[in-house]
């Protein structure tokens, strides 16, 4: 993810900006949130410790955290939007864009590293032609890493969706992915 909006190369004095007019844009959240979101939000109303839990529930339900959803959370639960964004970008687990049909997580923990997980990752990057945290153009696979899933005795480990695969090699990993259902990118 790039956070730059412009990238000046040099230090030093700058011109005063020429401003575009500031216009009232209307309330972007004039519509009520979709019922499933409302349901999650209303269950956590008034919980001062609820933010991360709410975000986790929304991501479990919708697969990722969309900007509009986060705006609803901010408005309806009273958490500052900047804080929500700060939280979402702090934790690895949260996604701001929709993932592919299958989330493939290569364990990069120590035991898996010692058992060659770097090779698996490199191989998947090469074969799928995507980087970490990216999704294949057909929307089938999203490649991710995970710090350790606690199945270290079965290193190297690859997690696909909610299934954990142990004793993986680059070839075995590719075979596993090939055997996954769905190929027509129906999840967009």
């Amino acid at each position: 993810m790039s956070f730059d909006s412009s990238a000046p190369a040099d230090a030093g004095p700058r011109e005063r900006p020429r401003l575009r007019k500031f216009a009232y844009r209307g309330d972007p959240l004039a519509e009520p949130p979709p019922p499933e979101l409302s349901e999650i939000i209303s269950r956590h109303r008034g919980e001062r410790d609820g933010l991360i839990t709410v975000l986790e529930e929304i991501q479990r339900r919708f697969g990722y955290l969309g900007e509009r959803q986060l705006r609803y959370v901010a408005r309806d639960l009273g958490f500052p939007l900047a804080r929500i964004y700060g939280v979402v970008t702090f934790y690895n687990w949260f996604l701001l864009t929709p993932p592919g049909l299958h989330q493939v997580k290569v364990c990069r923990g120590t035991a898996c590293h010692v058992n060659g997980s770097a090779l698996i990752l490199d191989r998947l990057i090469a074969e799928l032609a995507i980087g970490v945290d990216e999704t294949t153009p057909d929307g089938r696979l999203t490649l991710q890493t995970v710090a350790c899933v606690g199945a270290c005795s079965l290193a190297a480990v690859v997690v696909v969706g909610s299934d954990t695969y142990g004793r993986m090699s680059p070839e075995e990993a590719l075979r596993t992915l090939a055997a996954l259902p769905g190929g027509d990118g129906d999840s967009g």
Binding site: M1, F3, S5, E67, L70, A74, P80, L81, A82, R83, I84, Y85, G86, T89, F90
Partner: peptide, 21 residues
Amino acid sequence: GVNAIDFAGRGFESHVATPFD
């Protein structure tokens, strides 16, 4: 008390950000 900005990202990538940068 308005929390217009907060840290975003983590570690070396942290920066002060507005919502969604």
